[in-house]
Amino acid sequence: MTDTPQTLTGLSGLLADQAAVLARTMGSPMAAPDYLDLVRRARDVDELAAQVLKLSVQQSRDAGHTWQELGDLLGVTRQAAFQRFGKPIDPRTGEPMDKTVRMTDAAERATAIVTAVLEGRMEEARRSFNSQVLEAFTDQVRGDGLAAVTGLVGEFEGLGDGEPFVRRIGDHTVVDIPLNYEAGEMKARVAFDTDEKVAGLVVVAPDTP
């Protein structure tokens, strides 16, 4: 996509134009090669819609609306809304905090580590732990934690259907992985530190922010 005006009015107008073109394209007979062009147009509309949503949230905050109101509107918690759209200031530097996820393989690594822990392959999992987690995450801690989860939702049945959710929180890259149990759903949360080592690993309820 080319550069677009970074104003809500400009982006909204461009979104409307591109959505109209997409609608006309979808309504026309297409030969097989045209489907790739349709995907490109849909991708551009999706990217523009994300920018419009982000600016709309920012302007709503500037107008005095709370994260609770925005979370309710978006169907998420106020913390989840803040994590997605907020612009926190690092108290150590006074500068905006970097929310860019630089671990391109975070989802894959987290999934492999969680699977190893749940299946009891702790020697494999511990290769990814930082020194603090390596010391604290003993076999007894693992057993007690999994027993507590089993008491809530029964036996582990496998990974959930959803995709892992990756984001940057402070200095950590955090990944939530859906899990299926016999009587409900949970999610594993893995936090990687700046050295890309595991700084935390827990199993929590699926609606935990």
Rank of each mutant, 00 (worst) to 15 (best):
P88N: 08
T66Y: 07
S28E: 09
T173E: 12
D176S: 14
R127P: 00
P29S: 09
A107K: 03
A106G: 02
E135V: 05
L11F: 04
D98W: 08
V101H: 02
A188W: 00
M1W: 06
G170C: 11
D46A: 14
L74I: 10
W67F: 14
A191S: 15
L159N: 09
L70P: 03
V39S: 12
V190P: 06
A16L: 08
G170W: 05
A199K: 10
P33C: 11
G170S: 07
M122Y: 03
Q140Y: 01
V149E: 06
E196Q: 12
D34K: 10
E69G: 01
E123Q: 04
V21E: 13
G27V: 01
T66K: 10
F192A: 06
T104C: 08
Q6N: 10
Q59Y: 06
L146W: 09
N180I: 08
Q59C: 01
A20V: 08
L201R: 00
G143Q: 14
V45G: 00
E108D: 14
A32Y: 07
Q68E: 14
A112K: 15
R78L: 03
A19H: 12
Q51C: 00
F165E: 05
G120D: 13
A148I: 02
I169C: 07
F192D: 05
G145D: 12
R168Q: 15
V57W: 00
D34F: 08
D90N: 15
A31Q: 11
N130H: 07
L15F: 00
V57P: 00
T111I: 07
A42N: 03
L74Y: 11
E182S: 15
Q59R: 11
L70A: 03
P178D: 08
G120V: 14
V114C: 02
V149D: 10
M97P: 10
R109M: 10
K54H: 09
A116L: 06
E135A: 10
L201N: 00
A19S: 15
R142G: 03
